[in-house]
Write a protein that binds this DNA or RNA. Sequence first.
DNA 1: GTCTATAGACGGATAGAC
DNA 2: GTCTATCCGTCTATAGAC
Lengths: 204, 204
Amino acid sequence: MTARPTGRQQGPRGRRPGGPDTRGQILEAARESFADKGFRATTIRAVAGAAGVDAALVHHYFGTKDDLFVASLEISVDPRQALALVFAPGLDGAGERLLGTVLSVWDEPENRRPLLAFLRSSLGDPESTLLQDAFIRVIFKSLRGQLPDGDAELRAGLVATQMLGLLVARYLLAVEPVASLPREQVVALIGPTLQRYLSDPVAP
Amino acid sequence: MTARPTGRQQGPRGRRPGGPDTRGQILEAARESFADKGFRATTIRAVAGAAGVDAALVHHYFGTKDDLFVASLEISVDPRQALALVFAPGLDGAGERLLGTVLSVWDEPENRRPLLAFLRSSLGDPESTLLQDAFIRVIFKSLRGQLPDGDAELRAGLVATQMLGLLVARYLLAVEPVASLPREQVVALIGPTLQRYLSDPVAP
DNA sequence: GTCTATAGACGGATAGAC
DNA sequence: GTCTATCCGTCTATAGAC
């Protein structure tokens, strides 16, 4: 569970690990439901049921449904930092490195569900605009900042189309054979596309 | 309104056009809401309100909410037919032709909302699996059928990632500058990617 | 810490009057 | 054709007992 390392508000003087970690179980059930069904279709009651507790307990630990959603979105990577590492060696090969990094984050089991939850809810519920805009803009801006000026905006947009589509097809819709392809093969097939969007001429 | 040309179940001996086409207004309001907010977040009451009628009338014309959704999904193009036309001249240039065709369909005002509604609801509400699978499989199979054998499945999947991502970024999320780019420029920028997925070697 | 009870809203769908 | 009235279900959230 990724709940521990973040050190958020536990119970006032919380129980030591070893007993049944109810809070963690609730959080895990929430991640699963948000990832599979999105924000709206997820009900507190269902989450509580899956965790084997009462609905009121969910509120007790996490507050409102929005709070629960936010709590279930934590991942173990800072996107800006990861992006900086990708572009540190220069623009050459950045397409492959970018893709490899993103896929390795998504393939990490503890990140998968939070990311899926975020992706699905961003696309499905257009009123998540707060988070959506906040997060996407951070990544987008960060990516744009790594590119040479002039066409940076357009290049970042092109990269976004291919990257977004890959994530949707591979993880959200599970379109075969893309979903089952080993990571290295995806990088070999699609990395060059990203590289072209990053460094090929785009002017008319 | 695309309601006329399809000739579905009107009232038993329906009114001639000229009066306020209530049914059409309801349908238009439904398309807008489904496109903007997805299936779940759309309420019959809100649709009725936007159309200036009572909620019961919506049921009277369209039956259940699912029926209304299905009714709002009609577009003026048969995907299989369009695909066949794209691939008729051969594989050369099929990437650009495919992209141009898809974008021209999406840019048609009367198709835009039905397509958006379908895309948003497919991605957001995973229980639309019936429609989702039906439709996507039709397109996917149709596309695959146009490709030389061997890697057809993989090529179709790769094309899907780029196409899907473009549609999501351009129409659903409206990521700039991709959303505002003229169609021809999008074709020039992304068409070659599709062409490579269609005809470049993919074997290791 | 965990649950019972309940308030308060909202939404889909139907019956039937006009 | 259009609306009023209403039933029934589901959901979030809170107060408070154990």
